[in-house]
Amino acid sequence: MSIFNQLLSAFFSRLFFLYILSVTASQAELVSGYEFSSEQAKEFQDDDFQNPGFLLIEQGLNVYNKIGDNDQLCSNCHGLNGDQFIPKSIAQFPKYHDILQKPVTLRDQIQHCWVSRLDNFSLEYDDPELLALETLVRNKAYGEKVNVNISGKIKPYYEAGKAFYFTRFGQMDMNCAQCHDIYTGKMLRGQKLSQGHTNGFPLYRLESQKMINLPQRLRECFRSLRAETFEQDSKEFRDLEIYLNARGNGLKIETPAVRY
């Protein structure tokens, strides 16, 4: 190798090293969507009386206290108004369910109890009662740090979700990482791009003026990419939910958040 070549390679290797450093540094620093929100959205979120999420939590309590087809109640296991839910455990969803032999999201888990413990008919995936229950339960872990375990049997699902995150979709031909990793903080017209975390879900969207769960948000991202969407309870969106939650491990749960 000539001197020139050596200098060149030394230069590029350093550059490469710096690049790796900057990539890992940017990955280490997790920022909640809250920090990227407008003052109006922040105010809305911080005020329990204004935040429409709390209305839904009220409704969630009604559903929570509804007697199931076999005279069982959620409160039989989880206490009055859900005060026996364990925040640390709620913050671990999605997790691998050993009996069902697959990963379950918090929604799946609620659905599972609803059907197998209360003997009810299963709820549609976007049923308002399910959304209300999920908001209620997730809110019980308010302030708890997201803590999804990605080793063991859940690993392949996590990896699939990660691959999905880096796949370009739709006529816009973009992937999630382009908006939520590379151009975070930049403006998309009037909208500041956040890191696309899930710690606020279910959340109230100012734009559509309603509460939504994560798959509903994903469908909207898909629509804006002009891509053929996936079903809300598709394997793809479940895997993605695992990846997205794990990607935000360490962020505090903010349910019900208010976002654009």
Binding site: R168, G170, D173, R226
Partner: peptide, 9 residues
């Protein structure tokens, strides 16, 4: 060259 273009497009 595009993955999963919406049927609309």
């Amino acid at each position: 060259k595009i993955t999963r273009i919406s049927p609309l497009y």
